[in-house]
Simulated scan of single mutants.
Amino acid sequence: MPDPSRLVLIPSYNTGPRVLQTVREARAAWDPVWVVVDGSTDGTDALLLAEAAADSGLEVMVLPRNGGKGGAVLHGLREAARRGFTHALTMDADGQHPASRIAAMMEASRTAPEAMILGRPVFGPEAPQLRVQGRRISNGLASLQTLGGGIGDCLFGFRVYPVGPLVAVMERHRWMRRFDFDPEAAVRLAWRGVPAVNLPVPVRYLSAEEGGVSHFHYARDNLLLTWMHTRLVLGMLPRLPALLWRRRRAVHPPLAAAPRR
């Protein structure tokens, strides 16, 4: 059942007509759905605005220039916080994330409102193996940076975030605005003490004939991720005592005080 404190937030940049199907599937699963059009130049802003004009549960925000996925998400999160929303489910506009799992993710968030609910991708046979194998490096580094903080997959963007903590983290740092958003958000929230709950989610890589669009550039974005992991490792060092203490308490929780006689 929809929850007035939670919304679906979809950043979109030059996704083509496929974004309409993504939005319609999300709307069938949840109310409300917001789309942040991140400076698109493919005409999808007009398509989405027309869709929203006929659907009171859909809101479209159009940014004048492209600022990156994280920048678009932050724009939506600030507005969500202003209107009193406490949690936001983020999903990609390109059809990789299944709208059929929105309700389960939101229910997990209701059960553990203090947590970030992270989708753990279950890949189909069409998934590029270079991408599937390469993400193991990022996942291993995220585990190191949080000392086993429970992040199942740091790159998968199908998640429910607590809005307040994520906005606070993002406003303290000028990074996390492009493809570095998903992994850095998870690590920095874990540093902040936000627990992670992982749920398996099927992911589908659509072919170009199916309307699939990818803006990931291997050289540019792998350099971006390398710099991100470098600064996160450096940022982990002064936090080591707190992370070690937190891990020790997780493994050896304090004994409850004996009742008085």
Rank of each mutant, 00 (worst) to 15 (best):
P2R: 12
D3S: 14
D3R: 04
S5H: 13
R6V: 14
L7C: 09
L9F: 02
P11L: 01
P11D: 04
S12Q: 04
S12F: 02
G16T: 13
G16S: 07
V19Q: 02
V23K: 05
R24K: 15
A29E: 05
D31Y: 12
V33D: 00
V33G: 06
V33W: 02
W34A: 10
D38V: 02
G39W: 03
S40R: 00
D42A: 09
T44I: 08
T44N: 08
A46S: 11
L47P: 00
A50S: 14
A50N: 08
E51K: 10
A52K: 01
A54H: 13
S56N: 07
L58Q: 01
E59S: 15
V60F: 06
V62K: 00
V62I: 09
G67S: 11
G70D: 00
L74V: 07
L74N: 03
L77T: 01
A81R: 15
R83A: 06
D94E: 10
H97D: 15
S100Q: 10
I102M: 04
A103L: 07
A103I: 05
A104C: 06
A108M: 01
A108V: 05
S109L: 04
S109I: 05
R110G: 12
R110L: 09
T111I: 08
A112C: 11
E114C: 06
A115K: 05
G119V: 06
P121S: 03
V122Q: 14
V122P: 00
F123W: 13
G124A: 15
A127I: 04
Q129Y: 02
R131E: 08
V132A: 12
G134D: 04
R136D: 10
S138Y: 09
S138L: 07
S138G: 13
Q145R: 03
Q145W: 07
T146D: 05
L147I: 09
G148F: 04
G149L: 00
G150A: 11
C154L: 02
R159H: 10
Y161Q: 03
Y161P: 08
Y161N: 03
P162D: 11
P162C: 04
P165E: 08
A168T: 09
A168Y: 00
V169P: 04
R172K: 14
R172E: 15
R177S: 08
R178G: 06
D182H: 06
D182E: 15
D182F: 12
P183C: 07
E184A: 15
A185H: 00
A185E: 00
A185K: 06
A186S: 10
V187D: 05
R188W: 05
V194R: 01
A196Q: 14
N198L: 03
N198T: 09
L199N: 00
V201M: 00
R204S: 15
R204I: 12
Y205H: 13
G211K: 04
G212P: 06
H215L: 11
Y218K: 15
R220M: 04
L223D: 12
L223C: 13
L224I: 04
L224Y: 02
L225Y: 05
T226G: 08
W227P: 02
H229Q: 11
L232Q: 07
G235M: 12
L237C: 11
L237W: 10
P238M: 09
R247K: 15
R248P: 00
A256Y: 05
A257F: 05
A257C: 09
P259D: 11
R260M: 07
R260A: 12
